[in-house]
Design a protein around this nucleic acid. Structure first.
Lengths: 240, 240
DNA sequence: CCTTTAGGATAGGAGCACTATCCCAAACTT
DNA sequence: AAGTTTGGGATAGTGCTCCTATCCTAAAGG
């Protein structure tokens, strides 16, 4: 019986560690490190001095690179995602975890009992979103409570406008989403996509805020400052 | 002539380093460190062995704490903001810098000539935002070019919906904004507010995406996964 | 007189993501 | 057979950041 690779005309390019390093641009030392950290599956040990790595390892390395350098995840976070994927978890579980990690749904130390009702539940009802507890929902509840604690006011109007806006955005996001078959590819596009889109959102928010601030100043007239200052870039002394 | 403090009934509580440390909860060593780093103005040296710090120093320390622990800024970023404020820059300049730093408007290494037209300018026209080059606009242009380079597609529809959504949000943000008189207080509320609101937005986005994903699955039927998995929290092995 | 203090210099420590070295045994090469 | 490479494991070092600790001197203060 012929190998599946052959049937599909997929030439599994076998290589050993050094070549994998050369092709991926990742140093051999780093590859060993990823191996140790469990981000990369061990190659197939042929002899004691020869192990074969395939295209999968190459793509995995590129995924790790992207997750580190573009999305800015830590090794632990990457492991969380990859071990789930390698464990054969359902694609939706993987996606949910990618979302959790990329959008930072669990950074506040404020752990919450998942069943306790929180201030965010009203939003769910308001927007008629499916009523299921989720990581995102817990994160929202925790975050709202944190804002409360920090006395950062969140008016119902804010919650209304914000959630309405995000509802529109998310509807489009999901509509435009196409999920690749290959799991590593799925993680790559999902993580990079989520990150870039969320950053895009924040940059648009910044621009919109600046614009509205200028408008507000034009109406009420500049009082103790020049409106042009919002348009300069003061070039902080921090450097790139 | 009486001191202004006395007239305004503002008791300037004078204290020395040790007491400042006790009251603020910041270790004396850290205070010295902040002093060295230029985040905190030196106290008034009375004798060689006694320096007086006032309420301003106390509030400044609280500001630094908030910027570090809540907003998550680095020492260099904090210095960028504070030295501007201490240099007596216009309030709007300070706010612009806070925005730049808090919303990460300059993290991509992609520096841009401010005058070159970019893909984001169409958004500005579309939304009828004031036509002035700004940090936010540069950041948007740089980010869109980055997305292009990474082959993350940004459809005109996306830009339309996103910018429309952010326009609404920003309008409300600016409307609800009240800026404190005191500059340190201004920085505090602005930085914490921006950070918390942007995080809120991201969390709402996550929830909205999850909701729409569930909807989409309900319509087309679950194919190779259980919809319930989006609602679980798989508890990654990373731990808080 | 003895302890305390300010402020400066320096060094240490913890966490992170590598990076480099060393080692061994088992291959391949010549 | 001798010499070179290789895999993989262990271990230590690097560069960065944010502190934290120690030591020092000169000058007060009680």
């Amino acid at each position: 019986m012929p190998r599946l690779d052959t049937v599909l005309h997929v030439e599994e390019a076998l290589m050993q560690l050094k070549e994998l390093s050369a092709r991926s641009g990742v140093s051999a030392a780093s590859i060993k490190y990823y191996l140790r950290e469990g981000l990369l599956q061990p190659g197939e040990t042929v002899t004691a001095t020869r192990a074969d790595y395939g295209d999968g390892h190459l793509r995995r390395l590129e995924l790790i690179q992207a997750l580190r350098q573009i999305v800015g995840l830590g090794i632990g976070q990457i492991r969380t995602i990859l071990s789930l994927a390698d464990g054969g978890a359902p694609r939706l579980d993987v996606l949910a975890t990618v979302q959790r990690v990329v959008l930072g749904l669990d950074n506040p130390g404020t752990a919450r009992g998942s069943s306790a009702p929180g201030p965010g539940d009203a939003v769910v009802r308001l927007r008629r979103w499916p009523d299921a507890p989720s990581d995102a929902r817990n994160a929202l509840n925790a975050h709202l409570e944190l804002m409360q604690k920090l006395s950062v006011p969140v008016s119902p109007a804010t919650l209304d406008v914000y959630s309405q806006a995000m509802d529109t955005v998310a509807a489009l996001d999901i509509r435009e989403t196409v999920a690749p078959e290959d799991t590593d590819q799925l993680i790559l596009t999902a993580a990079v996509g989520m990150h870039m889109h969320s950053q895009l959102l924040l940059k648009l928010l910044a621009l919109a805020q600046a614009s509205h601030a200028i408008r507000a100043l034009e109406v009420h007239g500049p009082e103790n400052s020049n409106a042009g200052s919002l348009t300069a870039h003061p070039d902080g002394q921090d450097g790139p």
